[in-house]
């Protein structure tokens, strides 16, 4: 029997999968809604909708949800980027792994702190 090593990859992969789902489903809707139709005033006046949305989005709970969604998408990107290093046959030290995944955790947290303060 070959010797095998347990891994914490399931947790990282599960978050990666969740981020991928959000990137495929939620992100396009956010871009179309917030990035295209509202600024162009398709649904209502752009000025009014911005003010209303800004008020909602900066509410601590809503901001936490948005940061979580975008954070998971960022985690997805970081996970893929880290595995891309493996595809390139680069084998960076564990510190790089902590830095890559840490980036995906710290950035959405910092964004949430900046929004609510």
């Amino acid at each position: 029997m070959r010797r095998r090593h347990r891994t914490n990859e399931p947790a990282r992969w599960a978050l990666f999968g969740a981020g991928g789902e959000l990137a495929a489903v939620v992100l396009p809707a956010l871009i179309i809604g917030l990035g295209i139709t509202l600024p162009l005033g398709v649904l209502s006046s752009a000025d009014r909708s911005y003010a209303g949305l800004a008020a909602v989005a900066t509410h601590p709970l809503v901001a936490a949800g948005l940061c979580a969604i975008l954070g998971l998408i960022l985690w997805h990107c970081c996970h893929r980027a880290f595995h891309f290093l493996h595809d390139l046959q680069l084998h960076p030290p564990r510190l790089v792994m902590w830095a890559v995944y840490g980036f995906a955790v710290v950035v959405p947290l910092a964004a949430w702190v900046l929004i609510v303060t």
Partner: peptide, 14 residues
């Protein structure tokens, strides 16, 4: 699963 869920099992797959 003890074999699959290891660094040498399914996880090298990208």
């Amino acid at each position: 699963l003890e074999v699959l869920d290891t660094d040498e099992g399914i996880w090298p797959c990208t």
